[in-house]
Design a binder for these strands. Structure first.
Lengths: 209, 209
DNA sequence: CCTACCGATCGGTAGG
DNA sequence: CCTACCGATCGGTAGG
């Protein structure tokens, strides 16, 4: 960012060229990919959305798949940072504490990077780019499953449900955020993380104290 | 079904025509739609998968969208039956009991109709068929949210988390099943429903008794 | 005339 | 950043 251009996704009003940069085109592309699906979105759709012609898009971007790749990298980089930050061996922290922290950090990433994470969670493996993203996702899932298994072994979590199943259901709940969360909604990230950890770890039911 | 044909999706071996029926083609189509995405699946892909030519498909099916429509109807009919069966006014049942039952029934439907429910959960609203399916889904979500609100009002569920949020997270966890469940896996439906209700209602953490 | 298909190609549109 | 296009493939249908 060396220019004084506005960083918002909307073109400047009035005279002159809209002046999109690569980041603004990527944001618009991700929004369309999520709304219509990647395959159902044509580069013509993207051009119309931006008020450009199709060839004009290719002035900023080399391919449709490059847009997908950059979006998936954004999500994966953020999620990897969240997981490694929370799962690193930190003196005096139990696996249970680290698990609660990785849930909280994951929620924060889902909220802050909702568009790209949404796209990531819908990847089917239809291309090399998608298969590479799925591989990075699997690495994250394995880390999370290992952390849950540690927390069970530690005696912090109930052992009546298989750890692998717990991990899938817990992060299934976390990931479901992307289906309905919108930044302009009433929920703030800290409150969401609290709600999820309360439901998952303490349960919904009021128990006779 | 008035013939003695096998009802499996595989064509007969040996001489003669494969003899697919509409149901077998639908099953194969749904499997492909889930594996590659609806838009990324061509009728040529489906034909290849079945060992037929593309025109042969159209002998049994009027359009690609009809296949989608029938698959979504299957999922929606089953989910509607599960929700109405569990939410109907039944003497002596609390909202909390009905909520636990609708979770259990939903899990059973997800497991028994995993392919069509998976497809339903990925619909984006790209066509009239998809918009109609989203409307039926919204009706179901509203019923579930109302049931959660009733259970909170009843005093059975903790009121520190907004009911609308509880509903989304609870069924977000339930729905996440479709992402990884496979019928040949180690989990049986009753065990899955138990695991989900235990996690959601009683919590993962071992509390000091 | 039926069911169950095939080889070839239609009019349009995709990404580039 | 536009006009003018390409190789290919899309969903769907013709005659036999």
């Amino acid at each position: 960012m060396t220019t004084t251009e506005p960083t918002g996704s909307a073109p400047r009003r009035g005279r002159g060229r809209p002046g999109y940069d690569q980041a603004a085109i990527l944001r618009a592309a991700v929004e369309l990919f999520n709304r219509k699906g990647y395959d159902a979105t044509s580069m013509g759709d993207l051009a119309k959305e931006l008020g450009l012609t199709k060839p004009a898009i290719y002035h900023h971007v080399t391919s449709k798949e490059q847009l997908l790749s950059q979006a998936l990298d954004d999500a994966l980089d953020e999620l990897t940072a969240a997981v490694t930050a929370a799962t690193g061996d930190r003196a005096g922290q139990t696996a249970y504490e680290r698990l609660r922290e990785v849930v909280r950090r994951s929620v924060e990433v889902l909220v802050a990077h909702q568009p790209t994470v949404t796209l990531l969670l819908r990847v089917r493996g239809n291309s090399g780019v998608e298969l590479a993203a799925l591989e990075r996702r699997r690495w994250l899932d394995d880390r999370l499953a290992a952390l849950v298994a540690d927390a069970v072994a530690e005696g912090a979590l109930r052992d009546t449900v298989p750890p692998a199943l717990v991990s899938r259901l817990l992060f299934g709940m976390v990931n479901s955020l992307v289906e309905w969360y919108s930044a302009d909604g009433a929920y703030d990230p800290a409150m969401l993380a609290d709600a999820i950890t309360v439901i998952a770890f303490d349960g919904l039911a009021k128990h006779a104290a």
